[in-house]
């Protein structure tokens, strides 16, 4: 499927004169099921940005603006081709070792309730975990138990808090999934990306789900918010141990006044590719 994406973030400030440093993880990777036709990031200072590939395989651009007046716009847009791989991404060549994806972070620290959830979905025989059935069970249970409800949680809500409240958005579903999977010793990670939806639902276009490392298959995606493994309508953007680490834009601003952020994400199916010369 050929999908066009436009992802705009506009930061406006009460007062001028602050300094902002941002790390952008806004470059979708190439891998089985996903290739990039073209992609462009525009942001102040992007030409001189420091660029590197982080431990999780994300391409990072570090940009800074010191004291410029007016709003700060970060835009990423391009066209991506996808095919349906039943959610299987396979092995990716990032530096982090599988055991790293068992680490606890503040956002994914399990509560007793999450530990119990993990046990309840654990499928195993003779001490060997059946990862695929366990993970599918976890996805289904989570989808049933945690209601999708916009604004019920915020960016810093932990898996434990969201699970206790039984409500959340895709970020919370993914965090609880990670927390439980890691409890069972299954390496898993947070994925942020885009989702092609039928309606013009901007909230849903900017999406997040989970991936777990399954023997013989490699990384496999699970979207507990939608109770499905990713399809050709999913575009992977960045991964990490949790939402904070995988954030497409992470920034620190120092300076006067408050910041307002408006994010616009448009994901649409593009027509057939224009003929190449």
């Amino acid at each position: 499927m050929r999908i066009a994406i436009s992802h705009q973030s506009e930061y406006t400030y009460d007062r001028d004169g602050g300094t902002t440093v941002q790390a952008l993880r806004l470059s979708p990777p190439r891998h089985a099921g996903q290739s990039i036709e073209h992609w462009r990031i525009s942001a102040p200072g992007i030409e001189t940005a420091a660029r590197y590939t982080d431990a999780f395989g994300n391409v990072v651009h570090l940009i800074a603006s010191n004291g410029e007046a007016g709003p700060l716009r970060v835009a990423a847009e391009g066209v991506v081709h996808t095919t349906d791989t039943a959610g299987i991404v396979g092995l990716t060549d990032e530096a982090a070792s599988p055991a790293v994806y068992l680490r606890e972070t503040r956002l994914t620290k399990p509560s007793a309730a999450i530990a119990a959830l993990a046990q309840s979905v654990h499928v195993h025989s003779h001490g060997v975990t059946d990862e695929m059935n366990t993970l599918h069970g976890l996805m289904a249970t989570l989808h049933a138990q945690v209601a999708y409800e916009i604004s019920s949680t915020h960016a810093a809500t932990s898996a434990a808090e969201a699970f206790a409240g039984k409500r959340g958005v895709c970020q919370d579903h993914a965090h609880i999934f990670l927390s439980a999977a890691r409890q069972l010793g299954i390496p898993s990670r947070y994925v942020t990306g885009y989702l092609l939806t039928d309606g013009a639902d901007a909230e849903a276009a900017h999406h997040a789900w989970a991936e777990a490392l399954v023997p013989h298959l490699g990384w496999v995606g699970f979207d507990p918010a939608n109770k499905t493994c990713p399809t050709e309508r999913y575009i992977r953007l960045a991964v990490g141990l949790d939402a904070a680490i995988a954030a497409p834009i992470r920034g620190v601003r120092r300076g006067p006044g408050a910041e307002t952020l408006v994010v616009t994400v448009a994901v649409r199916q593009a027509g057939e590719q224009a003929p190449q010369q």
């Binding site: 590939t53 982080d54 431990a55 990032e94 530096a95 982090a96 070792s97 055991a99 790293v100 068992l102 680490r103 141990l241």
Partner: peptide, 18 residues
């Protein structure tokens, strides 16, 4: 043991591959 390393809070996963 892996957990002594990657599970250690003094281990910095962000440093991997550099």
């Amino acid at each position: 043991p892996a957990e002594m390393v990657t599970g250690n809070s003094a281990f910095l996963p962000e440093m991997m591959g550099f």
